[in-house]
Design a protein around this nucleic acid. Sequence first.
DNA 1: TGAAATGTTGGGGCG
DNA 2: ACGCCCCAACATTTC
Length: 460
Amino acid sequence: MKNIIWWVRRDLRLHDNAALDHALQHSEYVIPLFILDPALLSTPISNRDRFLFGALRALDKDLQIKGSRLIVRRGNPRLILHKVVKESGAEMISAEADFSPYAKKRDEEIGRQFPLVTLGGLTVHPPQAVLKSDGDPYTVYTPFSRVWKSLPQPGQPLKVPETLPPVPKLLFSESIPESEVFEGFPPNEQAARERLDLFLSSAVFRYSNARNMLAEDGTSRISPYLKFGLLSMREAAQRAHDLIKMTENQTERASCNTWLNELIWREFYFSILAHFPGVARKSFRENLRGMRWFEDAKGLDAWQEGLTGYPVVDAAMRQLKQSGWMHNRARMITASFLTKDLLINWREGERWFMQHLIDGDLASNNGGWQWTAGTGTDAAPYFRIFNPILQSKKFDPKGEYIRRWVPELARVRNDDIHAPWENPDLILDYPAPIVDHRVARERALVTYKAAKQDWEDQSK
DNA sequence: TGAAATGTTGGGGCG
DNA sequence: ACGCCCCAACATTTC
């Protein structure tokens, strides 16, 4: 075969890349192509896009070391592929399979026009592989994870090719837009692998507890790398399995298992989105679709800007805006605050997170928001409302996380930092709480209950 | 992958 | 010594 296009989408890596491997096995000439699809890029440019641009630059560099290079084009994928196929004489397109509603539709259309081969790798198990015995998808995490774990594990990761065939000089490539550096997340494959190695060499063994501590480096922090495939999900899961097998200390082994479960949550939400694409627009649970969310522009703005008056919420929201990433525990706290304390539609929060998270992924982000809002599959019950002060005391006991992100509170003592308004002697350039949590909690219980009741009355 | 409200228990102070 | 109360600590139920 003459030429084959390796269509790079969410697999910006040379390690364990089935689509690249497939291309190399079927042709001597492989053209790595990335298409900047306006339908997937944000306006204005999001943190996620900037991270992507950095990762593209790094992939191009890595490809050049191997003798190849990355072709970048901007436009509708179908039109771009049409052009590149014509220019290069490519006879096949090899790509990693994607399961989002947009990706599925795109790939179906393109598959009708071109010989497109899609291969696994975005998830360990594709959504069609984890089903109940009657063929229905799971909507509860625990049985999903049980079946997931019972499926055969992926084999050894694919090796990085020693060398790659050159790409025709005449093939035009656009320049990659400017990016910026996000602290802690260098956008290249080597940094991604180093981060995973570091995490799996120590923090994973105390993950069960440390993952909740806001000021600690206790989580893997690989989400941005999984988002764009700088790391292979299969390799991550494989290594988690290996660690569980090899770790003798029971607490440490349990921690490794907890981390594997987090990877499986990701797979669960990919499956949910694939089988229930409607979750991207509306509540999974019918009985909360009529929920009367508040139209509270001021509240939403205070939440977005980290000016709610609740230190832990504000620290988290500022971490997001300033760094492009937020600690997972903080995501739950801020999501609970928006949906329960402010009673603002979870979709507002979902959208804001997607604009600012460098790891922003439709399936995981939507799953997480619907979980917290109580509207999703296997979601937290509506009455499970986080108390931001208690969460702060539990998971940032010394206020280190708060002080790091809310400089106005840098000099506040530990006793006062979780609820500074309770000390009348404190004079701070910091807002008073925009809601009283006790009042807001009662309000949320009533409003959620009413929504459920309305639905029951209507469906009679 | 909550938290508040309510219930239960048991030790200690005290008349 | 005894009964009574208080309340912390823990358990259970409820939202």
